[in-house]
Structure formats: C-alpha cells, structure tokens
C-alpha cells in the first residue's frame, strides 16, 4: 500500500458516496446516467468474485463490499426508488457497443484463459469505458449540476492516482500488470476533457455548461 493507492481508493470511495448522497438528498437522479451506473455495478460484480476465493486483508474485503453494495444501491435508487426523476430520454448511449467488444477483447487478451480471470479482465476493460454513457448524457444536455461534476472529478482522479500507484509498484516492487495499466491510461484519458472544464469552470464557481 502506497500513498497513491490509498488516496486513489479514497477518491473512488468519495465519488461513490457523493453520488449516492446527491441522489438521496435531492430525491432525484436527474442528470445521472443509469446506464453508466449499471455498467459500474457490472464492473464491481465481475471483478470482486475473488471475495469468494481469496482473502487479502480486512481493508481489501471491506472496500470491495462497500463498492459493490453502493453500486447496487445507486442502481436501485435510479431505477426503482426515484425512477420518476430518471432522465431516460437523454440517457441514450448504446451500451451494447461497449459491453460486446469489451467482452470479446477480454476473451482474446487476458493473462489466463479461466472463467475468473476472463471476468476480471472484462471488468478492467469495462471500467475504462463505463463512464462514456454519463459523458454522452452531459454532452447531449449540454450541462451538469456542480455536485455531479464533483462526482466525476473524484472518479477520474481515482484512476489517475492508480497510474502513479503502478509507477510506484514498478519501481519499488518490480510489479506491473499491462492489462490494468493500458486500460487505466485509456480510462484517465477519457476524463481529460472533463478535467479541463472542471478546472477552468467549476473551480471558478461557474456551472459546467457546454457551448451549444
């Protein structure tokens, strides 16, 4: 455990909690892509099947359970409890265009052709693009609530911090995982445009709105 890894995890946790609280407090999931949240629930489910096969630490187990639990709670709030506020008309990204190629790639490029390993690889690839329906929704409506941008910022920073964690692990532990690194770079790049808008607009007190 290094400082990048820990702050990355905490940033990820903050993102998840911010989104849950935003929906819960406002009793509304307007502006949130339910599709992205379903993809994240799928990501955590397929990645953390190792909860059943290996124990690493109390920290590891608790965080995995919290991530999975919060992911399903978020999906429940969007599609059940606050369904009336869900903005389905703007959440029109075709997720099959992500899930199918990512599934195929996980079968072709993996460390070991075993069910758990393929599912882990699938989750890594899928996570890297799971935010696309959300970004697509924002580009369609042309704006995002400030609290939603805080969520996205924390979520993007998390994977960027993991990149530093992997650099650290490579230098000090001689460890690197090419699948995670390439997917993590792709994931971080997808946020760059958003990071720019966040820093130039939201941090200066302006609402994030895109030019028409």
């Amino acid at each position: 455990m290094n400082v990048f890894r820990l702050t990355g995890d905490l940033s990820h946790l903050a993102a998840i909690i911010i989104l849950l609280l935003k929906i819960w407090k406002s009793r509304s999931c307007a502006g949130i892509s339910g599709k992205s949240q379903i993809l994240f629930a799928l990501v955590f489910t397929t990645r953390y099947l190792d909860l059943l096969t290996s124990f690493i630490s109390l920290y590891n187990t608790s965080m995995k359970i919290i991530y999975v639990g919060c992911a399903y709670a978020t999906v429940y709030l969007i599609y059940a409890k606050f369904r009336a506020t869900y903005d389905g008309n703007h959440d029109t990204f075709r997720v099959e265009f992500l899930v199918v190629p990512v599934g195929g790639l996980a079968f072709l490029v993996n460390h070991d052709f075993s069910p758990l390993e393929i599912l882990w690889t699938f989750s890594i690839y899928l996570e890297s693009v799971a935010i696309l329906p959300q970004l697509f929704m924002i580009s369609k409506t042309g704006e995002a609530e400030t609290i939603t941008t805080h969520y996205l910022f924390c979520l993007g920073v998390y994977r960027a911090l993991y990149l530093f964690n992997w650099i650290w692990r490579f230098y000090f532990e001689g460890f690197f995982d090419m699948i995670a690194i390439v997917a993590g770079v792709v994931q971080t790049i997808l946020y760059c445009d958003f990071f720019y808008l966040y820093i130039t607009k939201v941090l200066k007190g302006k609402k994030l709105s895109l030019p028409a």
């Binding site: 630490s57 590891n60 965080m63 995995k64 075993s114 758990l116 532990e173 995670a180």
Partner: peptide, 10 residues
C-alpha cells in the same frame, strides 16, 4: 487466478 498483488488492488 492466484496473483495476490492483483487481487489486492480495487
């Protein structure tokens, strides 16, 4: 799938 380092990451 037995890489402990990888299972350690979230």
């Amino acid at each position: 799938s037995g890489d402990p380092v990888r299972h350690d990451e979230l």
